[in-house]
């Protein structure tokens, strides 16, 4: 039905919900170690021997519960990265932001991190990085302020 007397309008509005995400016991231990001891921990599968960082409670390939914690040095190798040049309200830093995936020494998975103290055009896959922790830490992945180039 077309109604020529009235010009159709589009209403613009917000719908807001509040959620809280549970990290769980395994995730909590990982974040608490970062917050209290500036230590990055991995978890090792007793069946296949893979070390997961960030940790999860079950090995996705073997479906076994993991409980063996492994302390890592924090140093690692960049496996891929991208540079974000536009701005969004939820971004933790001002652009340009270099998002990298770093495989920490001793781990079999990569971890997301913001790369710092390096220019975007100087970053190369395979470069070595180490974490720089915030002074005020609250138990979040962002307690790692950024990863900086290391030897």
């Amino acid at each position: 039905m077309t109604d020529k007397a009235v010009k159709p309008v589009v209403i613009e509005a917000d719908s807001i919900s509040t959620f809280q995400v549970t990290v769980g016991a395994t995730g909590t231990k990982f974040l608490v170690e970062i917050r209290d001891n500036k230590r990055i921990m991995g978890i090792k599968c007793s069946s296949c021997g893979k070390v997961y960082v960030p940790p999860r409670s079950h090995c996705p390939t073997c479906c076994v519960k993991m409980s063996e914690w492994v302390e890592l040095s924090g140093k690692g190798t960049l496996t891929t990265y991208t540079v974000v040049r536009y701005k969004e309200p939820y971004q933790p830093k001002e652009p340009p932001i270099i998002y990298g995936v770093i495989q920490l020494d001793g781990a079999d998975t990569g971890i997301y991190g913001i790369l710092g103290e390096v220019e975007p055009d100087k970053v190369k896959i395979g470069m070595r990085f180490e974490p720089v922790f915030k002074d005020e830490r609250e138990g979040s992945l962002l307690d790692i302020d950024h990863f900086r180039p290391s030897s």
């Binding site: 109604d3 159709p8 589009v10 613009e12 917000d14 509040t18 995400v21 549970t22 974040l31």
Partner: peptide, 26 residues
């Protein structure tokens, strides 16, 4: 024991095309 939780609001911005319903809104 301590269990970490994050609280966050999630805003869904939407555009609702009223079409023929415009007449009721007006």
């Amino acid at each position: 024991p301590e269990f970490i939780q994050y609280k966050y609001p999630r805003t869904q911005h939407y555009w609702h095309a009223l079409g023929y319903q415009t007449r009721a809104v007006e």
